[in-house]
């Protein structure tokens, strides 16, 4: 099959003054794409061709190519990870596109995710949010027996649903406000539903939200684009959980 690609090319990293205005969308054509190829394999072929022509290949982040590491981060036709629900860009296959399709590929767009080059963005803001409190303070060796603290299955499942977050940033990319509340909410909700998470409950949510705000993410307006774009289909329930937890912690503090 044949596809026409429009890809964001940017050679220098964005800064807080210059968000990459020197970048631009560039058009490429590929005419021998197989429907069984993954989307990233299609980009691999493009890069091989570009290299052969002496043009620098398109930089894009990818690693595990099986939908779990969260590295790939492509906005495909205005949707994070492309048109399929519950799928990362690396799991997307060309059979999801019609022959002759035009495909727009852009990096995640958010002030908190500066573009480093082409389609590669810096998601360090997510790491800093986690560093602010998305953990249980337990040193190695200090744990009690794993079965000493039963966790009702329903609670464990709820925690798990939130914990499946792969930190890819699709929620921020999809949100009209570039808000990170699904991400941060998932961290809060994960620990909220486990007995181990109770001791640091208030501190955790206060620090997480403070850091998230400081990083310059937008605010949630309850449009739920994040949930629809999340490749792991994390429910917006986690945002309600975080809102409640934050207010509770504020009142107590």
């Amino acid at each position: 099959m044949k596809v026409v690609l429009h890809i964001w090319r940017q050679s220098r990293p964005s800064t807080s003054q210059d968000f990459g205005q020197d970048g631009k969308m560039v058009r490429y054509e590929l005419d021998d794409v197989s429907a069984d190829m993954s989307f990233l394999e299609m980009l691999d072929i493009l890069n091989e061709r570009l290299t052969a022509k002496g043009e620098e290949p398109v930089a894009f982040d990818h690693d595990c190519r099986e939908g779990i590491c969260g590295t790939c981060s492509l906005m495909i036709n205005g949707r994070p990870h492309g048109p399929e629900r519950g799928t990362t860009a690396c799991q997307l296959h060309m059979r999801s596109f019609q022959d002759g399709s035009e495909i727009w590929i852009e990096p995640w767009r958010a002030k908190s995710f500066p573009v480093l080059r082409d389609l590669v963005v810096d998601r360090g803001a997510f790491d800093r949010v986690v560093q602010a409190g998305a953990f249980i303070s337990v040193n190695t060796g200090a744990a009690v027996d794993a079965n000493a603290m039963p966790v009702p299955k329903a609670d464990a499942d709820k925690a798990f649903d939130a914990a499946t977050c792969i930190g890819c940033g699709a929620c921020v990319a999809a949100c009209k406000n570039a808000s990170a509340m699904l991400f941060a909410g998932a961290k809060v909700s994960h620990f909220l539903h486990l007995p181990q998470g109770q001791a640091e409950r208030d501190r955790r949510v206060l620090n997480l939200v403070e850091t998230m705000d400081k990083e310059g993410f937008g605010n949630c307006t309850n449009q739920y684009e994040c949930e629809a774009a999340c490749p792991k289909e994390i429910p917006v329930r986690v945002i309600a959980d975080m809102n409640r937890e934050y207010n509770r912690a504020r009142i107590k503090s």
Binding site: V138, A143, D145, A146, A156, A163, H190, L194, Q196
Partner: peptide
Amino acid sequence: IDQAVAQGVPFAR
């Protein structure tokens, strides 16, 4: 296993 559970790893239950 003890360490992971204490960290909040949601193992199947």
